[in-house]
């Protein structure tokens, strides 16, 4: 159950990012109400933390095939459609994941070592975008994994 642990840890990390973002905002609200101060950069910190959590969740979504899908045909006629459409969806998902990796990696590469930073916390964009690209690399791995599962399932059935 290696994959189970890996995806569980990823989800926990993603969820912790959500909690961290919420915690920073609440701390800011408390400081503001009782000490009249604010937490520097709190909006950007919250946004980046929660955004990172969302990005981390996407690869698991690919691997577990829990993407939002309108299953109509395979519900009407599972025998005819279930495996064929499952493979079709997995192939398209893999292509899309690969394109997104290309897009984000290229963008990270173009900003790598450049002077651009975020507005408030002054974090280097090159590093942040590299992190984004890495999560999309993980998404591609997840999509490939799901494709292999789908193909095996179809072979076993054939």
């Amino acid at each position: 159950m290696k994959r189970g642990i890996l995806s569980h840890v990823t989800l926990l990390l993603a969820g912790s990012c959500f909690l961290l973002g919420a915690g920073a905002t609440v701390w800011d609200v408390i400081l503001r109400s009782f000490a009249g101060r604010n937490l520097p950069g709190v909006i950007e910190f919250t946004t980046l933390s929660i955004g990172f959590g969302a990005l981390l969740s996407i690869p698991v979504c690919y691997a577990r095939d829990q993407k939002v899908t309108a299953r109509l045909l395979s519900e009407l006629s599972p025998r005819l459609f279930k495996h064929a459409l499952g493979i079709l969806g997995a192939v398209f998902s893999t292509v899309f994941a690969a394109m997104m990796l290309w897009i984000t990696a290229q963008f990270a590469h173009s900003k790598w070592g450049g002077p651009e930073t975020t507005q408030d916390l002054m974090l280097p964009m090159g590093i942040l975008l590299t992190v984004v690209a890495l999560t999309f690399a993980a998404s591609l791995a997840g999509a490939l994994y799901n494709l292999v599962i789908k193909l095996r399932g179809a072979l076993r059935n054939a």
Binding site: L12, A14, F18, L56, S57
Partner: peptide, 18 residues
């Protein structure tokens, strides 16, 4: 808490992709 946090991540992964 752990279950709430991981369930949230699963839901949000799909939503952000869309």
């Amino acid at each position: 808490i752990v279950k709430a946090v991981t369930d949230t991540a699963v839901t949000c992964g799909g939503l952000y992709l869309v």
